[in-house]
Structures are given as C-alpha cells and as structure tokens.
Amino acid sequence: MTMTRDTSLRDSPGTTAPGAAGDSGKTAEAGAAAAVGLEKIAVRFRSRRRDVTALHEVSLDVAMGEFVAIVGPSGCGKSTLLKLVAGLLKPSAGQVRLNGEQVNGPRHDIGYVFQRAALLEWRSARRNILIQAEMRRMPSVLARARADELIAMTGLTGFEDAYPHELSGGMQQRVALCRALLHEPPVLLMDEPFGALDALTREQMNMELNRIWRETGTTVLLVTHSISEAVYLADRVVVMSPRPGTITEIIDVGLPAERDYTQTLARPEFHEATGHIRDLLGAASAHD
C-alpha cells in the first residue's frame, strides 16, 4: 500500500507520488484531465454571530473512472466538498473543475445519491427512476431502455412496479442509485448513501456498488463515516482533519478493482489501510 500526503497533490495538481496508482492504475497522471479537480479550495460561512471556516487549502484530483472515498470527523466539510463539485455551493477561494471545465453553478451532468432514498411514495420503482428522464426531457424510448438496463443491473427485476413502502431500505437505495445513473453521468457523488441501512444490507450494497462501478466505469466520489466501507470500495481514501477541514493524507489502498467481500476483508492491504486511517482519525473521530 502506498501512502501519499496531501502536499504531493497540492504542489503539483494532476500528479501523484511514484507508485501511487496501485493495482487500479486510475490515479490522475501529469497532463491528464481530471474528472474532478479541486485547487486550493476554501469555504467560509458568515453569520451575524460568527464566521466559520469549513474547508481550508483543499486540493485533489480524481481521475476519470476512479473511485475515491472521503472520511473524516463530523463537521470537517466532507459533504461540503460534494456540494462544491455539484455546483450547489461556491468556494470562498480556489477553483473547482469537472472534466476540465470550471464549475460556476449547478451541474446537470452529475449523479447524486444521498443518505435517504427520497422516493416519491405515489410512484412505482420504475416511475421513480424515470423522474430523472422527465426532468431532463430525455427521449422516452431511450429512458425506458436505460431504466430496464439499470433495474436488471441492480437486481430490482420483479420489483419495477412496487411502491416505496413495499421495498426494503436496501431496495429503495437501489432505486435511488438507478435514478442517479439514468442519464449516464460521468461523475457520481454519494453522500453517506448506506448510513441508514442495517449492517448486512450495507455489506450487500457495498458489493453491488463495486460491481456497478466496474461495469459502468463511472467516476465515483463517496463520503462515508465507515472506514471499512471506504477501503473496501475505493481506489484511494482521502482522510480529512477536524474543522477547518484539510486533507491530512491520501491513501492508496492497493487492492484490485474486482473485490470479493470476505476475501478482501482478510487481505493484509485492507488491514493496513483501515488501521492506518483509524490511527489518523483517532477512535473518537470515526467509527465503522
């Protein structure tokens, strides 16, 4: 496993330390356009009572097709980073780029999955997925074909006409994932998508997400409080400091893209990475 500190990316955007690509080979190379680029980002919130610096000097390049997880203590700015990439929030300083283009406002070419599935109770699973097509005015035939493809990919076949109250929490999140992927976004943002699920369902969703990521080739940026989840899923794990959030260290987990769950958790690279992240965060800062 290769450990690379934040400064290697901050000083030379788009580059990593030698060997940092690990088994995946997806780490951004010098001169290559990053799917997501953050350059010396700062975010400050001002109110009548006080000023709060949420993020300070955050720089990160995420290569196309790469899976990057972000972990850190509550309030360190993890979700704020996703909002910056989505264009829902403007940085106080620095630049955000998506596929080489500066982000100046809400982006419609990304997918976003939240902790809660947020499905419409009066619409079936299929119609909840297709709401994305309606909002984007996608051709009906194309949208339905894509929805069928995603329903099969996520194991929802047979539940297309079920309503949210008839689906388990895991199935509801599968519907939310299908909805986010319907328009084939080049970048998928995920904010604690499995945090509300029970442990067994969460493991199953981790395995499903790994498979779907490999099949679609989508760039994924995942925020999670689970160290094990971050290491199992990601090519690299970004460890954040307490507020004001900065990048403490960027860890290349060194695991192959295709990961059997039980075998991966037994690998020395997995234990080395999770142990190191726990040391960085401290027992009081993060949990599995």
Rank of each mutant, 00 (worst) to 15 (best):
L265T: 14
M240A: 05
K26E: 13
E229H: 09
L188Y: 09
A176L: 01
T16P: 01
M153D: 03
L188S: 03
I110H: 06
T248F: 00
I110N: 08
N210H: 12
K26H: 15
P193H: 04
S74G: 13
R211N: 06
P268I: 15
K83A: 02
G155E: 04
T27I: 14
L130I: 12
G72A: 05
G22L: 11
Y232H: 05
K40C: 13
R126W: 03
E272V: 15
T201P: 05
S59D: 02
M1F: 09
P91C: 02
E269V: 12
E66Q: 12
L182P: 04
V223R: 05
A257K: 13
A283V: 13
N104A: 06
N99G: 12
V71Y: 03
T274N: 04
S47N: 10
Y112E: 06
A42H: 12
L156S: 00
P73G: 04
W122S: 10
T53N: 11
R136I: 07
G65E: 07
Q115N: 13
D109N: 03
V71G: 04
L120F: 15
S24Q: 12
V96M: 00
A147V: 04
K40N: 15
A230I: 04
D11F: 03
R267A: 11
P164R: 06
L255F: 04
P18I: 08
L55P: 07
L167F: 04
R10G: 04
M190R: 11
A143D: 06
V36R: 06
M240K: 06
R144N: 07
T154W: 04
R123Q: 01
S92E: 11
K90A: 14
L55I: 15
H165F: 12
G195T: 10
H165A: 05
V187R: 06
V113I: 10
D148F: 02
M135L: 06
P256T: 13
L222K: 09
A28S: 14
V253C: 07
R136E: 01
S140L: 00
G65F: 02
V220G: 01
K40W: 08
I250R: 03
G77A: 05
H276F: 09
F67M: 04
R211G: 05
A133H: 07
P106R: 06
D235W: 11
I41H: 01
V62K: 00
I129K: 10
P185E: 01
G170C: 05
A273M: 07
A180S: 00
M190N: 06
H271C: 00
L38F: 06
I277D: 02
A266R: 14
T218K: 11
A33E: 15
I129V: 13
R236M: 07
K83S: 08
S226Y: 02
A63G: 14
V141P: 01
A20D: 11
V85R: 09
G217Q: 12
E39D: 15
P91M: 05
T262H: 04
A145R: 10
A34R: 10
F67Y: 02
L55M: 06
Q173I: 07
T2Q: 10
T219P: 08
P91I: 12
Q172P: 00
L177F: 04
V141I: 11
S24R: 13
G282E: 09
H287M: 10
L38W: 10
T2V: 13
T274A: 00
